[in-house]
Write a protein that binds this DNA or RNA. Sequence first.
DNA 1: CCCTTTATCCATCCAACGGTTGATTGACGA
DNA 2: TCGTCAATCAACCGTTGGATGGATAAAGGG
Lengths: 220, 220
Amino acid sequence: MVKPNSSTVRSKTSQAASPDDLETRERILDAAHAVFTRKGTAASRTQEIAAEAGVNKALVHYYFGTKAALADAIFARALGNIMPRIFGILADPERTIAEKVPAIAREQIEFHSARPYLAGYLISELHAQPERIARLMSRQGGRVPLDVIRRQLREGARAGKIRPISAEQFVANLMGLLIFPFAIKPALRELLSLDDSRWRAFIEERRRLVPDFFMAGLRP
Amino acid sequence: MVKPNSSTVRSKTSQAASPDDLETRERILDAAHAVFTRKGTAASRTQEIAAEAGVNKALVHYYFGTKAALADAIFARALGNIMPRIFGILADPERTIAEKVPAIAREQIEFHSARPYLAGYLISELHAQPERIARLMSRQGGRVPLDVIRRQLREGARAGKIRPISAEQFVANLMGLLIFPFAIKPALRELLSLDDSRWRAFIEERRRLVPDFFMAGLRP
DNA sequence: CCCTTTATCCATCCAACGGTTGATTGACGA
DNA sequence: TCGTCAATCAACCGTTGGATGGATAAAGGG
């Protein structure tokens, strides 16, 4: 690694000085993440990414070849960040369903509150390139482990404690309740006339409400 | 209106012949809808829209000025198509909540099954230009009529028939359950290993499941 | 000390894209 | 029958943006 701007050369106008100890490659990745998630891949400019990374546009190509490859990397990274948070908990055989649901809800609401662009970004990318996810998931192996919840749901149903529901529908319902509001945030805010503080209250309320609502929906 | 290709001039290579009685302006709108919803606004090319409309690129500008204006028109049109379907039913004072929920579910699942791109498109646009929806909604007036459900929810809660829930959360939950799976269709199909026919079965099942699940979630 | 490798920038290229212009054509009212 | 106007097209223009080639500098091995 080279790490420029020691003292010698570097006229470099540039901002971006602060978190400069990061490896350049990482800085570019972070910048790309910021720009891509904010404006969407198609509307993002490599120039802007380079600037945000405090680096020359050519260097972006040096590290990642093409814009599309960089976009793939960011998408895969975001996916690899969010998916284990959901499926890691779901696949845990130690916890009951009644424990998992609030845990996931807490986790996801926390997560998306801190990353308001992410849900919208992921859906946009999914929509723009529906085939990519198959490519990425096959490459890094790993279909999703539904067997644990599937078993728990079956046992709960047999014991008459919950109504019969497939693991697929279970997951779809849970994700819809948790993620969707973040994905359409601008529309919801307008539709429901929620200013900043009411939006926060709205989301805060869902932390309680969603687990209750969801578990109630499962009762037979 | 002029209506070309009568018989005289028109060398015109072009396909697009079939539904040609539509006014040109409408043909362009339809083409723009198809292209924009399929690839997203930023990745769409006016040239492609023109081609799909069987028309010259200059004509697109002749009718709509700029790509952005055309994009606005398509977005507003899509919004004006989907929103009344939900809020029209919700605002009906004649139907009870227990009647509205299955009605909306039927309607929405039908709607999105026939328009697989629409949910993803709307969320992408929302994400790419969060301020636009405020602009459009203020222009054509019309905040959403939540008072009817709000009253019904309050009365249901007072009578002890449903648990207390705000109209806002009610709407968010319902939309999340109904729309989200369509919005992330490519991911769900991959995650849950649903091929074409299993996807259809999955959606078909939700027609029953969502109203049941949702109404159960409302029980006190 | 050279020579190779890695990292970085500058300048430039080229395709593509959004938008414009000017000409043509047909319909129609005066 | 002529002039006007809306509709339409082919060709063009200016800019942007992704990509590349070459120069340069530091690092490090031999």
